[in-house]
Amino acid sequence: MNQDFIKLLAAWALFHESADEGWKAAVAQGQKQQPGSMSEGPDAFVHGLAALVDEEKEKLKARLAEDGGDAAAASSGDLAERLDALAFEIRELRGCMESLQATVDGLAARRGD
């Protein structure tokens, strides 16, 4: 079966972590199956598929946990964007400090008058 499709279903399963009992039972049944037994009938197929999806779901969960729970950080494009935003904040802060210095200079000159 197409791996992407399994991944899609895994994502669905992850969003439904608290899925119903029927789903959990199917996963448990599927995990007990021997290799190749998915073709033994509709129930075996569903159980096997559920187990496959669950396995992929666990992998996806681990990957998300490695990324600090934020999938956005995974892409380098997003990372560059964040760095850019951070650099801007730092430059903004420098501007703020310079402005404060100007104000202090003004006040100091007034005190000296």
């Binding site: 703020c96 310079e98 402005s99 210095q101 100007a102 104000t103 003004g106």
Partner: peptide, 8 residues
């Protein structure tokens, strides 16, 4: 903006 010369 030239923050060096900017105040309120």
């Amino acid at each position: 903006v030239v923050w060096r010369h900017t105040t309120r």
